[in-house]
């Protein structure tokens, strides 16, 4: 029974059946499935399939966005039931678009994929002042700071973030990953970021690698 519900949850995420997400999540909890199992064996599996379909160009952004919203709808029900320490989420990630840029679709897709991978995400939004990132990283004891920008003038902000982390002796304990249209692997190396991701799919792999270190 519980396996069926979990499969159905994954399917609802893949197909973006957003209206079915909440009732099904409630049904799963009612059937005694733990929040953790619902997230990892249901929702995450669904998002993984969505990622694969996106990679194969079976899905484009509109479908991915809908699947993400469907996952979030289910998470609204499930997350409050997650017991402390049960999270299993081995990583805490602060994510956002750097100050001066409002292009946040890419960031939102990365956030959805990382959430789908079971990580705990603190979303700062877009056009976020640099010092807010540092404050949040400290307050939440984050493992990773992930920032993006599509524009070139705002690249300087990423360089500045690296400096600010270094000044607080947080380089090392906190890993950084960057992405977005104006960024590149070379640029990441240049400013001392720990990783660069081409897209949301790569971001999940990169985050997993950084968390192992």
């Amino acid at each position: 029974m519980s396996e069926q519900i979990l499969e159905k949850l994954a399917e609802v995420v893949v197909k973006g059946k957003i209206k079915e997400a909440k009732p099904l999540a409630e049904q799963a909890l009612g059937a005694g499935i733990t929040a953790q199992t619902i997230i990892f064996d249901g929702l995450s599996k669904g998002m993984e399939v969505v990622g694969q379909k996106y990679e194969k160009k079976e899905y484009y952004l509109p479908q991915v966005l809908l699947s993400a919203q469907t996952m979030y709808a289910a998470l609204d029900i499930v997350l409050p039931k997650l017991k402390v320490g049960e999270a299993g989420a081995s990583g805490r990630i602060v994510i956002g678009v750097v100050e001066g840029d409002v292009h946040d679709i890419g960031k939102n897709i990365v956030k959805a994929m990382l959430t789908g991978a079971g990580l705990q995400i603190f979303d700062m939004g877009r056009d976020v002042p640099l010092k807010k990132y540092i404050e949040k990283v400290e307050a939440e004891k984050a493992n990773i700071l992930a920032t993006s920008t599509l524009m070139t003038p705002t690249l300087a902000g990423m360089r500045e973030l690296e400096k600010m982390l270094a000044e607080k002796n947080l380089k090392g304990p906190v890993k950084t990953m960057i992405g977005g249209g104006a960024t590149s692997k070379e640029f990441a190396a240049q400013i001392g970021a720990d990783a660069w991701g081409y897209d949301a799919i790569e971001a999940v792999k990169i985050a997993a690698n950084l968390l192992k270190k």
Binding site: I18, P62, Q63, L65, L66, I105, N108
Partner: peptide, 11 residues
């Protein structure tokens, strides 16, 4: 909002 516009392609 571009994200809304994209989502509406499906919804």
């Amino acid at each position: 909002g571009t994200e809304n516009l994209l989502l509406w392609i499906v919804t």
